[in-house]
Amino acid sequence: MKSCLVVDDSKVIRRVARRILEEMDFSIEEAVDGKDALEACERMLPDVVLLDWNMPVMDGLEFLKAIRGRANLKQPIVVFCTTENDMNHIRLAMEAGADEYIMKPFDREIIEAKFAQVGLM
């Protein structure tokens, strides 16, 4: 079973993502911000991280740069899932090492399509 870390400060978004991903046979871990996500990755690195951009403590871009900067870790696939939909945000995310980008709101079909594009399906 593949694992996914859902990183979002919204409990509702985490719950929706969990339901969709569990139906897709992923085991789910949750984090409320980038710092929490880094700690979760140190405990057990997921196959994929579904990552929000705007969060307190450490935002998604800071988390992405931090995880990509850890050369000693096998790198997870990182899929941004955010309301930030302008080209500058997408460019920044891809330059920092994001594998894919999903706009909120999302549904199962969108997640399946993006996960298939990065080889998870």
Rank of each mutant, 00 (worst) to 15 (best):
L45R: 13
A37P: 06
R68A: 00
S10M: 06
A66W: 08
M58N: 07
G69P: 00
I13M: 05
L64G: 05
C81A: 15
R68Q: 01
E109D: 15
Q117E: 13
V48S: 12
N72F: 06
R14F: 05
L38N: 01
F106N: 06
G60C: 14
Q75S: 06
M24T: 11
A113E: 08
V49T: 12
E30T: 07
D107Q: 08
L50P: 05
R70N: 01
M44D: 15
A71K: 10
G69A: 08
P105Q: 09
N85P: 05
K114M: 10
V16L: 15
A93I: 07
K2Q: 14
I102D: 11
A17P: 02
R14P: 09
V49C: 01
A96M: 07
D99P: 06
L120N: 04
F106R: 11
D86T: 08
A71L: 09
C4M: 14
F80M: 12
V48M: 06
C41F: 03
V48R: 12
F63S: 03
E95R: 10
L92G: 00
A113Y: 03
R70C: 05
D107W: 10
A37F: 14
E95F: 02
A31V: 08
N88I: 12
Q117P: 01
L120H: 01
V32N: 09
D9H: 04
Q75I: 07
L38A: 00
N88Q: 10
L5N: 14
E112A: 15
D25H: 09
V57L: 11
L64R: 05
R14S: 00
V79Y: 10
R18Y: 02
E42A: 07
E109V: 02
A17Q: 00
V78H: 02
E30G: 03
V118D: 04
D52R: 01
V78I: 14
A40S: 15
M58W: 00
C41L: 03
E62I: 05
L73G: 03
K74A: 14
K65E: 13
M58A: 03
K104M: 05
M94N: 06
I102M: 15
I111F: 13
A98Q: 12
L64E: 04
L51P: 11
S27Y: 08
K35W: 03
A17T: 04
P56G: 08
V32H: 06
N88V: 13
I20E: 10
I13F: 03
P76Y: 07
R68K: 09
D52M: 08
V57T: 00
E84P: 05
E23P: 07
C41H: 07
R70P: 00
A17W: 01
L21C: 12
L45M: 15
S27M: 09
P46V: 11
Q75P: 05
R15M: 08
K104D: 08
V12N: 00
W53Y: 15
I90K: 14
E30R: 12
R14K: 08
S10F: 06
G119K: 02
L50G: 07
E100Q: 11
R70H: 04
